[in-house]
Nucleic acid binder design. Structure first.
Length: 282
DNA sequence: AAGTGTCCCAACCGCACATAC
DNA sequence: GGTATGTGCGGTTGGGACACT
């Protein structure tokens, strides 16, 4: 049985929104609030798909949308965050108040990707050479050169939060969570969010797909023993005979230590960390 | 001025996840 | 547990605006 389309396309307006449609949607949401997007166009009297209404509201009509050109600071931040998070536009947009994921995505595709591309090759070579083998394995940014057999990177944040922790949630990790993010009350999802905001080093984990690499063994130790297939001269590879082990303090070191955030003293990650820590409302 | 090419961005599309039943 | 539904996400597209010839 196939999935029912989100709405019937028959008789619906498509393309650019008119001022009247905007006003209708705006007034409806002001009165009834957002949500129930499927029913919204019917109840509001709009000949639009619910998804279309949602998109129009989130990307254009929302009152907290910031208009105008993207500043140099924002520009710089987008580049740095993209380096950390990849194409997770909603996450990046979350760091830029008033900017939407669509706007940032467009801005990246039209401006920044070209800008970054021209600098990527030389930086990549330099950075790889300054990292230890373990860090290169763990915090391996996407290489600019495509490989023939490339690991699938899950782009959705919701997927990634499920990748790292096993359902068992070993006690060592629970303790770590409670200690590092007491306000999260030990909830892993909150902790992920906190770490993502505060430290950014977890983003390096989010950049990789650990779903089939990582597991906890009987001693609450995280084992990385999958075959990491890449072309970055990482020999010998991690294997079941030669696993990379993290236990208790090791995890903390990798997540919060200087080596994680500032793997290269001259790295721009350092300045990003400083910049982010200076913002109280992240 | 007219034709053509390029850029930019709003909107669309399909997929994945969360939740309800 | 399986299915349907609602929502959110990233990738892609279409068309208007602008630049160039």
């Amino acid at each position: 049985m196939g999935r029912r389309p989100c709405c019937s396309k028959d008789g619906l307006n498509r393309g650019a929104w008119t001022a009247l449609e905007d006003r209708t949607l705006e007034e409806y949401i002001q009165i009834h609030g957002q949500g129930s997007w499927r029913n919204l166009p019917i109840e509001a009297g709009l000949k639009r798909c619910g998804k279309s209404c949602r998109l129009r509201w989130l990307n254009y009509l929302r009152p907290d949308i910031k208009r105008g050109n993207i500043s140099e600071e924002e520009d710089d931040l987008i580049i740095r965050l993209h380096k950390l998070l990849g194409n997770r536009w909603s996450l990046i947009a979350g760091r830029l108040p008033g900017r939407t994921d669509n706007e940032i995505k467009n801005y990246w595709n039209t401006n920044l990707s070209k800008k970054v591309q021209s600098h990527s090759t030389s930086k990549w070579t330099h950075k790889q050479s300054t990292l230890s083998k373990e860090k290169r394995i763990l915090f391996n940014p996407t290489p600019p050169v495509p490989t023939t057999e490339y690991r699938v990177v899950r782009t959705k944040a919701t997927s990634c939060t499920k990748v790292f922790f096993t359902p068992e949630e070993p006690a060592a990790v629970n303790e770590f969570v409670k200690e590092k993010a007491p306000e999260s009350d030990g909830l892993l999802s909150d902790f992920i969010a906190d770490l993502d905001v505060e430290g950014l080093c977890l983003s390096e984990f989010l950049h990789s797909d650990f779903s089939d690499l990582c597991r906890f063994d009987d001693n609450n130790t995280i084992r990385l023993d999958g075959n990491i297939d890449n072309n970055n001269d990482l020999s010998p590879p991690i294997s079941s005979d030669n696993p990379l082990l993290f236990h208790g303090e090791n995890i903390e070191q990798y997540w919060t230590g200087v080596n994680c955030i500032q793997c290269d003293p001259t790295s721009d990650l350092q300045s990003l960390d400083t910049f982010l820590n200076a913002k109280e409302d992240w």
